[in-house]
Structure formats: C-alpha cells, structure tokens
Amino acid sequence: MAGCSTASSVETSAEETSTDGGAADDGIIRFATLPLTDDPTAETPIDAIVELLEAETGYTVEVTDVPNYSAVIEAIRAGHEDIGIMSGFPSALAVNTGEVDSLVAWPGDDEPVSTCLVLDDSPLHSLEDITPDTTIAFADPSSSSGYFMPVHMLDAAGLVMDEDFEVLVSGGHDRSFLALQNGQADVACTSTIFPSMAGQGDPMFPFEVDETRSIGESISMPVSISVLGNQGMSEAKREALLKALPVVFSAENEERLGLYGEGMTAGVDPVVEPGRDLFQPFVDIAAVADVDISDLG
C-alpha cells in the first residue's frame, strides 16, 4: 500500500481499527480519490469534496489521492480507507469480490462511451471494412473506454480479437493516437471525449479538425461512477454517508466538484445501495474480452 500513501494521510492506530478490518467510528471518514477522466492532467477537487462531505456528515474527512484503481479497492477492502469513487468497470470488479459495497451509483446515460477512429484518408469506412490485416490500437486492458467497450463493440459486429484483426495495446490513449498518426495502427479505439479536442493543440489528441473520423461507436455504460465503501465501517458512519453522498455529489455542486461533477450523468438520480445486478452488464461485457470479473477475490 506504499503507493497509496501521501503526506495528507494519517495512520490509523490499533485502537481505531476494528478487528474485522474496518475502520471504527472514530469521527473520521477516510476517502481514497483518483482521477475519473482519461485526461491525466485533470485535478481532483479535493478541497471542495472535503468541505462538502464534512458539512453534510459532521465527520472529519481525510483524503488520500491514489492514481491506481486496484490500490483504492485494496485499501477499502483492508479497512485502510472508508470510501473511494471510480468508474463502472473497476466498481464492478470491486463489488464482485463480495468484500466491497457500492454505497451509491449513478447509472450512465444513453451516449456511446467509445469510438474507433481512422485517419480521414483511410480506406476503412465502417467496421465491416476491417480485415485480418487491420491493426487496431487499444489504450490499456484495464481501460473501460479504451479496451472493454470497444472490444465489446467489435465483437457485436462479428469481429474477434486476434482472428479478424490484429491487436496493438499501446499503453495509453495518447499512444494509440501516435500509433494511428505514424501508421503503426489503422484504427485507434478510444473514449468519445477525445475527438472534441481536435485542433486545440492538446498533446493528448494531436490531430486537427477533420483529420480523423469514426467508423463505429460503442454502447453506453450501465454505470457511470460509483462510491465504494468498506464493509467494516460503523453503521453510524455508513448511514451518514448514505444520506450525504447523493446531496454532495449533486447537480447543485457540479461546478465545485469539477471532474467528479462531470463524471455524474446529468438528470439521472443515483441508486443508493445498488445490488450486484446493476453491475452485471459489466461482467457480461468483460467476458467478451476473456476477462472474468464475476468472482474475483
């Protein structure tokens, strides 16, 4: 857990930790945060989150900023942190361990999550034009928009990985774009947020307007984001969070919440204490990519 440690973290003494691995109700909510967007330059609005959560719960909030999904999940499972927020796929992974709860989840909207881009002069005009000689770049095997969702989209079009096209795992969305730009890939499958960056000189999307075009888009995400909770926290702390979280993470605070506000689906009410069934579509989508997240422990 060394990767989870920051100067703002405060160690929990033995007296403050329950025997089952959950933090006791010592008046502190320990919150592990990490970026929600695909833009690594985006900053987490920690000060606003702390102020809003403290006002609504009456607890002191301590934040640990963590850049890694698995580190957040493990910290919550072990009781080092009380809550964490993340997107759909890692939330499904965490819930399906049976050792982490989703306290509140926001269903997704009907908009596509991923798009598969080609250069404007590419001979590919639809997914049907892809052949076994076509190289498709994916960001990372743990990426929702840069892997799971586009693999599901391609599978729905009858295209099987490593059979009907060649796979290039680039290691990041920006690297997929470089591969496309340099001719190492014919297609780059990525988040739908990136094409809007065209012509802005953003290094994350190094293309001009109309220099790329989409040949296919994925389905929407069943869950946009979820607040995960440690099962061993006290009932008082849990109840305080269940009441506060939908108030804190609301349209009223969207501007103050920055990227967290953007991560919530506008006009969609959150689901409090959702069951596993809400996350089942992620399990099904992951299965297409030969990843079984239905029974991870």
Score class of each variant (00 low, 15 high):
Met1Gly: 14
Gly3Leu: 13
Glu11Ile: 09
Ser13Thr: 12
Ala24Arg: 00
Pro35Cys: 10
Thr37Asp: 10
Pro40Glu: 13
Thr41Ala: 15
Glu43Thr: 14
Glu51Asn: 14
Leu52Trp: 02
Ala55Ile: 05
Val61Cys: 05
Asp65Arg: 02
Asp65Cys: 05
Pro67Leu: 09
Ala78Gln: 02
His80Pro: 02
Ile83Leu: 04
Ser87Trp: 09
Ala92Val: 11
Asp101Trp: 01
Trp106Ile: 06
Trp106Gly: 05
Pro112Thr: 08
Val113Tyr: 13
Thr115His: 07
Cys116Asp: 02
Cys116His: 02
Leu119Met: 14
Asp120Gly: 10
Ile130Ser: 02
Asp133Phe: 07
Thr134Met: 02
Ala137Glu: 06
Ser142Phe: 12
Ser143Val: 06
Ser144Thr: 15
Ser145Leu: 07
Ser145Thr: 13
Val151Gln: 14
Val160Ser: 12
Met161Gln: 13
Asp162Asn: 14
Gly172Gln: 12
Gly172Asp: 14
Asp174Lys: 08
Asp174Ser: 15
Ser176Asn: 12
Ala179Phe: 02
Ile193Lys: 13
Ser196Ile: 14
Met197Val: 07
Gly199Gln: 03
Gly199Met: 12
Gly201Gln: 11
Pro203Asp: 14
Phe207Trp: 06
Phe207Asn: 05
Val209Gln: 08
Glu211Val: 09
Ile215Ala: 09
Ser220Arg: 10
Val223Pro: 01
Ser226Cys: 05
Val227Phe: 01
Leu228Phe: 03
Leu228Trp: 01
Met233Leu: 15
Lys237His: 04
Lys237Gly: 08
Arg238Cys: 09
Pro246Tyr: 09
Val247Leu: 12
Phe249Pro: 01
Ser250Arg: 03
Ala266Met: 12
Asp269Ala: 15
Val272Lys: 00
Glu273His: 04
Pro281Gln: 04
Phe282Leu: 06
Val283Thr: 05
Ala287Gln: 04
